[in-house]
Design a protein around this nucleic acid. Sequence first.
DNA 1: CTGAAAGCGCTAACAC
DNA 2: GTGTTAGCGCTTTCAG
Lengths: 387, 387
Amino acid sequence: MNPESLSPAEPAAATGASSRAEPTAATRDAAPTDPTTPPASPFPHAATLHDVARDAGVSLATASRVLNGSERKVAEAFRERVERAAEALGYTPNMSAQATARGRSPIIALLVADIADPYFGQIAAGVARGADERGLVVTISITERDQDRENRILRALRGQRPQGLILAASRADRSDDTGVAGSAPSELEAFERYGGRVVAFGDRPDVGGEGRGARSIVIDNAGGAEALGRRMAALGYRTAIGIGAAEGVRTSDDRLGGFARGFVAGGGTVARIHRGDFRRESGASAMTEALAEGVEPGTLVFGMSDVVALGAISAIRAAGRQVGTDIAVCGFDDVSASSDVSPSLTTVRVPLNEAGYQAFRAVVDEDWTQDPLPVEVIVRDSTPGVA
Amino acid sequence: MNPESLSPAEPAAATGASSRAEPTAATRDAAPTDPTTPPASPFPHAATLHDVARDAGVSLATASRVLNGSERKVAEAFRERVERAAEALGYTPNMSAQATARGRSPIIALLVADIADPYFGQIAAGVARGADERGLVVTISITERDQDRENRILRALRGQRPQGLILAASRADRSDDTGVAGSAPSELEAFERYGGRVVAFGDRPDVGGEGRGARSIVIDNAGGAEALGRRMAALGYRTAIGIGAAEGVRTSDDRLGGFARGFVAGGGTVARIHRGDFRRESGASAMTEALAEGVEPGTLVFGMSDVVALGAISAIRAAGRQVGTDIAVCGFDDVSASSDVSPSLTTVRVPLNEAGYQAFRAVVDEDWTQDPLPVEVIVRDSTPGVA
DNA sequence: CTGAAAGCGCTAACAC
DNA sequence: GTGTTAGCGCTTTCAG
């Protein structure tokens, strides 16, 4: 572009490079009229480092050094020429090539149950934010809460040779250590064995944990739920119904257990627990079930997650009952929909975006210690209290 | 594992391979006691194709042929040995290496404004579903609705040499063709020039469109909104207030325009329009603004998107007004929160997940034509109608 | 400080 | 059908 700069046609000659006329470069650019030129490929190739080096009249090594972070110094004159050439050609380093050469990819793999679920959406946003800061790329996979699927994905993910793996799959991270269920643990170990870091939400599904990895983002489910239970009791509620996931699912157990502890401490009783999974529909059907068994006015329903609580609310409405003074409801997470429902949902706020960000940091920062994630009870209109 | 199978220590010798003792393989595995063995790297390397070939006693080419889809036939005996060796070593092809060698990566890059927003979350889910079916990987980037950021990201994305790019960034896809604002268009052209496909939601931000790409997922915003407008008029509403994005933003213009057309056709009038962007807060402040100017009971508010409408609802509540008979509200998209609010939100349902899936197909299928995405008016409680 | 050359792990002609 | 051998685009010793 700049007329002062090297003519794109012969900079190589200008700097005297005798061995630069390898067949590749030559056939590709030097002689457009050369009859041996292979038929043009369907699309032009993106500029390569080779092109930049040639145009700048420097070696591949030098071009690489100035363009892609190397600590080695390059003379200002050369540096400039390389930068100019790169600019002119619109050069962008080929990530895959760099990855193969360096032996490590810039990928962070994120595994979620369902990216359309606001819970995971927020976590993903946090992860993406971190990755962006560090120039890393995040790939996303959906488990659909299916253990087999998750295992298959994990297997396939190894192909990416990701720098790290973030598991926010709400898997049945059962506390019973028999690694029997699913081959995931060994798959995860494989990840770490070759240097990848695995960070899980909740507890690591595998036992042991002496691997260099074994990092996990823990949310104070029990504590938050206990505070919520106590607060609800203070509002005058005396009997509660819990809606949770299957027994053995950590997050659910912790929240249900914590809530019960607090609620009982405050003088209440958890009458019974209905179980399903983390989806909205599950919350709705559990609630329907509960209603069928009979729910006294003034009862409080604790949904193990907001999404589930939201499902419960819709079931309560569908049954012609009122949410609030008739049947009170509270949840956990504080996803954004919770403040939109009406009556707005009482819940425990969890900084999900921050949690995702921390998960990212746990993957990339060698020295890392979790900052505790503050959980906070937020009382809204769905639990007006009993007179 | 199977005692009957080849001893892992000497299968290569068993098949007589003379040239197989290149320094690399040799130093890496053959002589653990060899004093010239380099100090062990921090982590063991993942098994390479080379390892598999050696253990199976075949050439690299053969191993490659059986393990990674090649059409060329390989004798059953060899195929089995290779598979066994791969299995035993836990081999997984290195995606980056394959990408460099093949000259094309398995990546589909998805660009969204905000992954925590349910609108984009659903689209992302659809994209991920498609990618999973085809064994492709999707990377995700967040524009935060910032044009500069989007351009930077686009630039960086080129490094991934993605097979395709899906733009669901709700960018200011202004209809004024002056490509002046932002260098994005040229960046997109660059993508297509080297063979990548660009698929955009709404219309392509660049002009022309004769590139082989120029595919876009169009949602019938005008039509859906018009139907909604007509329906609202039929419910008896006579005056409406619109909440949209800045003038010139396609999606917003189309929805606002379509709504007005239908509403007016039905006998109503759109009194005025307040503008902001696609975020919830924006909807809330626009509504607050509207309320300050005075909103008669019986007025209908049309939020250009559900998220915005949800924001408006919260503002209405905050102002001590009632949603429904006092001030009616309707939106567009039918994100899941819309059925959870109370009163539930009247809206136009858009199959977002399906749209994401189609976007994926548009990227990978050479012959592709968009299946029309059915939009459907869904009347709920937020527009009870006027007596 | 620069450049030549040997890889990284895998693919794809091209020979045998 | 199988193996050899160049690459792919980039990094990184190792000599100068």
